[in-house]
Amino acid sequence: MNFTYKPKNPSKYAVNLRALKNSTTMDWDIPSGQTTLIIQCPFGERPNEYMEKICLALNDYLGDITSDCFFEIMPDVKARFITAAEKGRQHGCLIEARSRTYMVFAADISGDDCVIYESQMQAMTPPYVDISTEVTVTVEQQTKSKGFISKSIVPTGYYIIRFDKSTFINYTDGDLVYKIGSLSIPITSQMISLGAIYIKTTVKPEVKPGKKGIRLL
C-alpha cells in the first residue's frame, strides 16, 4: 500500500483524543465515517514531528494493516487503523499500553492508496494524549521482636518494597527502579506479581520511575 502524508484538511480530522482516569479505553472526535490512524510512541513524543518517517515505515510494512490490534512499524512506535464503525462499537479504542503517548490522524484508504492528513493541533482539543501509569509502592524496614521479658523491636537488616498489584497495568521490566546510593536496580514484572521484595540493606531504598510516564502515588 502507498501511504502519503497531506496537509491538514478541515473536513478530514481526528481530534480531542482523551482517556478518563483509570479507564482502559480512549476516545476522540471524527467526522462521520472517518477512518483513523492511531500512532503509539514513547511517552511525551509527538509523532506528527516525524510523520514522513512513519509513512515510509508504513510503506515498508508487510503485515496486515487492517488488523484489530497495534502493530510495530518502527522501533518503539506502533500503529493501528480503526474504522468509524469499529470506533463506534468499542466506544473508542482499548489502551494497549500505558506510559505511552497516542496520537490520532484522519486517514482515507482507497484500494492500494492511503492518505494520512496532518492533525489539527488545537490546545483545547489536542489529537494526542500522554497516558501515564500511576502506581502505588511502599518501602518499609523489616523488623522483629527481641528479648524475652522486655521485648523491643529491632531491624532485621532487610527492607521490604511492597507493590499494590491492582495499580500495575501493562508494566514492563525497568519501568521502576530502586536506588541505594549510586546503584540503580530495576524492578521487574516478576517482582510486581509477587507483591513484595526483600533487600538486604540498612539504607532505605528509594523507588523512582525508570522512564517517563510512570507516576508514584
Binding site: 532485621t156 524492578i187 521484595i197 540493606t201
Partner: peptide
C-alpha cells in the same frame, strides 16, 4: 557488596 543489594523474594534467599 553492591550485588548483595539486589532483591530477593524472601529474606532467606
Amino acid at each position: 557488596t553492591e550485588l548483595m543489594l539486589f532483591p530477593r523474594s524472601n529474606d532467606s534467599d
